[in-house]
């Protein structure tokens, strides 16, 4: 893939700006590190930026983070593309990240993944037509004894069954977030 082909999906139309409160939070996170070591805050800031600016990191968002940390944009791209939690392209409103690793597979993650694909009529990596859900598979999330499981936002949903997946999808769709 050449850079230009995917450029558009990686851009925001406007320059993102943190609210005053968020900016204060970010400044306090930066000040947790010793003088001159502000770059250490980058991962945490990227998590916040992703949350604030639509669930993904556009080029504009990353450039903005570079500006806040006074580093080169490439340093942010390098970091953001290394850590798999960061989405570098737009996603659906909710991202289902289903664990596909061994221990979860032993207890049936394959069939949960197939079921979600069927139910949302998408493949892994795609977003449902209504724009609500993106399905991703991820590696072990540290919930191996409670599998099959998926993460959506900060929340872990464990001991998944088909019924539970139905409930989850309905709950997220209706806007009442599942517990």
């Amino acid at each position: 893939m050449s850079n230009t082909e995917i450029d558009i999906r990686k851009r925001h139309s406007e320059k993102p700006v943190f609210s005053i409160e968020k900016m204060a939070e970010i400044q306090s996170l930066i000040s947790q590190f010793p003088e001159g070591k502000h770059k250490s805050a980058i991962i945490r800031i990227l998590h916040i930026a992703e949350e604030e600016f639509g669930g993904w990191l556009s080029i504009e968002t990353m450039d903005y983070v570079a500006e806040i940390l006074s580093i080169e944009p490439i340093e942010v791209y390098e970091v953001a593309s290394f850590y798999t939690m960061f989405n570098l392209e737009p996603t659906g409103k909710f991202v289902f990240e289903v664990c596909r690793t061994g221990p979860c597979m032993l207890v049936g993650s394959d069939s949960i993944i197939s079921y979600i694909q069927e139910k949302l009529d998408i493949k892994v990596g795609e977003t449902s037509k209504d724009g609500f859900f993106t399905l991703k598979t991820v590696e072990c999330l540290g919930a191996c004894g409670y599998g099959p499981m998926l993460q959506c936002g900060k929340k872990y949903h464990e001991h998944l069954t088909k019924e539970k997946v139905d409930e989850l999808i309905a709950a997220y769709r209706s806007g009442e977030f599942p517990k």
């Binding site: 850079n3 230009t4 080029i59 490439i74 340093e75 791209y77 390098e78 593309s81 290394f82």
Partner: peptide, 16 residues
């Protein structure tokens, strides 16, 4: 710089 990870690592400018 170096983008991505593992066997997908690549040298790139990310954007043109």
């Amino acid at each position: 710089g170096v983008l991505n990870r593992g066997e997908h690592s690549e040298i790139s400018t990310y954007i043109e």
